[in-house]
Amino acid sequence: MNPQNSTFEFEDPIQRKSLAIIFIGISITGLAGNSLVLISVILCRKLHNLNNIFVVNLSIADIITCSLLPVNVVILWNPIEDTPPVAEWICTASTAVNFICVGVSVNTLASISVIRLLVVTRPLQTHKPRWLIRLWILFTWLFPSAMILLPALILPGGFVLGYNTKYGVCTQKSSHPYISIYNGINLLTFFLPLVVIIMCYTAIFIRHRHHSKKMIQSSGENISDSNISLSSIYSISQFVKHTSDTRIKHTMMFKIQRRQIQITKNMLCVVCVFILCILPYVIVAQKIIQGDIVVRLVPYCGAFIYLNSAVNPFIYARHPNFRRVFRLMLTCNWNEIPQPSMTLKFLTNYRI
């Protein structure tokens, strides 16, 4: 059965309020966790690096998504009506921004995968000018904005995004005559970055397999990478570039590569979680699986997309640098944060 043509309506008050409570939990957890990520990067210079610029971009998108969830909470707490219990423009605007932020997330993950490929394959050539990084970040917002807003405005039949009378939430309008075309365009918006992600991590995997034997052999040289920070990798790379000692160059290169592979695994975990969270909604929205039960699961599949915004900080916490800064912040040991930024120094001095 076509989810758009089904007569089913998400009317059960228990299910609606249960979903609203889930949204509240996701919103609170996502806002707290992603704010922790942002503050960590602001306060610790050890976390100032190219990879974490995009991590911050991802966290900003997640914060915006979580901050808009209360709109749907209010709507879900009320019974289904022909019009939402909030202003129609609020419903439409929150839906558009949420869709854009999901697009920003997948484009940011694609950008991180490109960076991971560069640092693993060309560790000495990953320093990029600031103007290029700014344009790159801007693109992660402009591309999904154009792909989501332009079709919604251009397609006949009115704006595609807004209050969905079938499910009583803010999303696409299931009654819109061109909803299938819009969903197809949305799928393309997410499919292209996912292709980039798969290609980059496949190349990284091949590279890792190619060098694994060399890295095992190098372990006999007592190489330890536990003290290499992300912020120091560029300086180490410059040192390696100019040193004439072959053994030192070989040793330091392996330190960098091993460190970058650890980071790559962590970011690959973020990608896998994102795909797992968005996959259920893609399956039901694109009618890959059909039936009454599928139609009833649509609201919960949508909740999985929002869940992704809340779980990312827990994945970042697996990284030792983030984990240490998180712990020091939560225990208010501000003076023990490694390589404090000027902001942290100002705040600690002001407090004293």
Rank of each mutant, 00 (worst) to 15 (best):
P123L: 13
Q125D: 10
Q125V: 04
Q125P: 02
T126F: 05
K128S: 09
K128Y: 10
W131E: 01
L132K: 07
L132T: 03
R134E: 01
R134H: 05
R134V: 08
L135D: 00
L135N: 07
I137Y: 02
L138V: 00
F139Y: 08
F139W: 04
T140K: 09
T140F: 00
W141H: 12
W141N: 09
W141L: 10
L142E: 00
F143Y: 14
P144N: 10
P144T: 10
A146E: 06
A146C: 12
M147W: 03
L149C: 14
L149I: 15
L150I: 15
L150S: 11
L150K: 06
P151E: 13
P151N: 13
A152V: 03
L153C: 15
L155I: 14
L155R: 10
L155K: 08
L155Q: 13
P156H: 11
G158D: 11
V160I: 15
V160R: 06
L161H: 03
G162N: 07
G162L: 07
N164M: 02
N164G: 06
N164K: 01
T165R: 12
T165Q: 10
T165A: 11
K166A: 09
K166V: 00
Y167C: 03
Y167P: 01
C170S: 05
T171P: 00
Q172S: 07
Q172W: 04
K173E: 01
S174Y: 04
S175N: 12
P177L: 05
P177W: 00
S180P: 00
S180L: 12
S180C: 04
I181K: 03
I181F: 05
Y182W: 12
G184W: 08
G184C: 14
I185G: 12
I185W: 02
N186S: 13
L187C: 15
L187H: 08
F190E: 09
F191K: 09
L192E: 06
P193S: 11
L194Q: 06
L194V: 09
V195H: 03
V196P: 06
I197Q: 11
I197L: 05
I198G: 02
C200M: 09
